[in-house]
Amino acid sequence: MRDLQLSLNQTQRVRLEAALHELQTVAPAAAVTVADTIPVNDEDNILKGHGTSDQDGEVVATLCGVVERVNKLVYVRTLRARYKPEVGDIIVGRVIEIAPKRWRLEINFSQDAVLMLSSMNLPDGIQRRRTAVDELNMRTIFEENDVICAEVRGFQHDGSLHLQARSQKYGKLERGQLLVVPAYLVKRRKQHFHHLEQYDVDLILGCNGFIWVGEHVVVGENANMMENKLNLSAEVENFTPLETRKHICRLANAVRVLSALGFTLTVELIIETAEASVSSNIEINNMLGAEFYVQTAEREVKRRADLLRKKSGAR
């Protein structure tokens, strides 16, 4: 957790510090720091994975984190790692350049990702070979600074990272907010696309820490939308109902609060935080105020305590 840029009064500071101290008492076991020796009980055949090194026959940590073991494999799972792409990751990125037959995307990684023209669904939805006309029309599909969601395909032999967007759920993201949070706050889950029906909002938790909160898009109507786009005026095309816009802002602020406090972002926690602000009659702009931060921290303490109690009861 970074230092909060908040104007806390005395009472709020005491409450916040108490809550954070409570959270830290549930510390993870077997945490190591750089150059710590990892005890392996003189076992043979130890496989040394990520974050470990061999030093005079001893296993030494090269990263700060938690020691994990799988059979004979020992590795260090960092708590605040930079994003490292893996096949199948859902990511959100921003277009920074259009090159021949490809777009380059910024995805919060040490290098830019590449989305090939042949790796995405054409707007008309028909599966066919790409032509020179398609290349000329690339800017009408995505242009610089567009926000796109895609899937990691893998590293190519030349070391470049390739994406793919072969389903209609991928593609350009419009009428919403893009939030940037540390990537380690987003855990790999089975589902990263979420349609929050009660808010009519799409929430995409990108594995790279880019989070999109936007108006819901009905998948499958893209073909019709292409036709309608020509008929709609510019004003009508960009219209989003006020109620939906409020929901987007409230959810986005919930993400901001949670990430500032350093809490893991799950769709359940985001919704719970947004609902808490509604039930507390807090205005959307006041969600970023000091009082709501303290309330959120205190609620998280209670939630984890309940979780712990359930586990103890189950055991």
């Binding site: 043979d44 055949n45 130890i46 496989l47 799988v70 059979n71 004979k72 494999l73």
Partner: peptide
């Protein structure tokens, strides 16, 4: 995979 994680290939 099981053979690999058992460390047999390592030794």
């Amino acid at each position: 995979t099981e053979l690999m994680f058992s460390g047999t290939l390592k030794d």
